[in-house]
C-alpha cells in the first residue's frame, strides 16, 4: 500500500528540521508552529524539502503560512501541485 502523503511529509519534517520526535508523533492537524515550536525560518526549510522530496516548485507568491501550518494543509499543497503524489 503506497505511503500516505501526510506520512511522507511527517518523515521529511522530522528529518529536515531535526525534530526530537518520531514522525508518527505528529498529528495531521497539529499546529507545527504552536505545538512543535517550528520557527519561521524552518517553514522555509519545509518549502525547500517539498522541492527536493516531491519535486514541487512553489512560485514566489504561492507561499502563505496558512498552507504550511499543519501537515494536512501541506499535503493539500502537494496534491494540488502533484495530483499523483
Amino acid at each position: 500500500m503506497p505511503e500516505r502523503v501526510e506520512d511522507r511529509l511527517k518523515a521529511m519534517i522530522v528529518e529536515r528540521l531535526m525534530l526530537k520526535a518520531k514522525p508518527e508523533d505528529i498529528g495531521d492537524e497539529d499546529d507545527l508552529i504552536k505545538k512543535w515550536n517550528v520557527e519561521s525560518v524552518q517553514l522555509m526549510e519545509i518549502v525547500i524539502g517539498l522541492e527536493e522530496v516531491f519535486g514541487i516548485q512553489l512560485g514566489d507568491d504561492e507561499f502563505s503560512i496558512k498552507k504550511f501550518r499543519t501537515v494536512t494543509n501541506i499535503a493539500a499543497v502537494v496534491r494540488e501541485k502533484k495530483p499523483d503524489a
Partner: peptide, 19 residues
C-alpha cells in the same frame, strides 16, 4: 535572495497575520 524573500513574507505574515 529567494529564501530571503520567502522569509520576509513569513515574518510579515506572522507579525501582521495578513500576508
Amino acid at each position: 535572495v529567494r529564501q530571503w524573500k520567502m522569509r520576509s513574507q513569513i515574518r510579515a505574515e506572522l507579525t501582521t497575520g495578513g500576508g
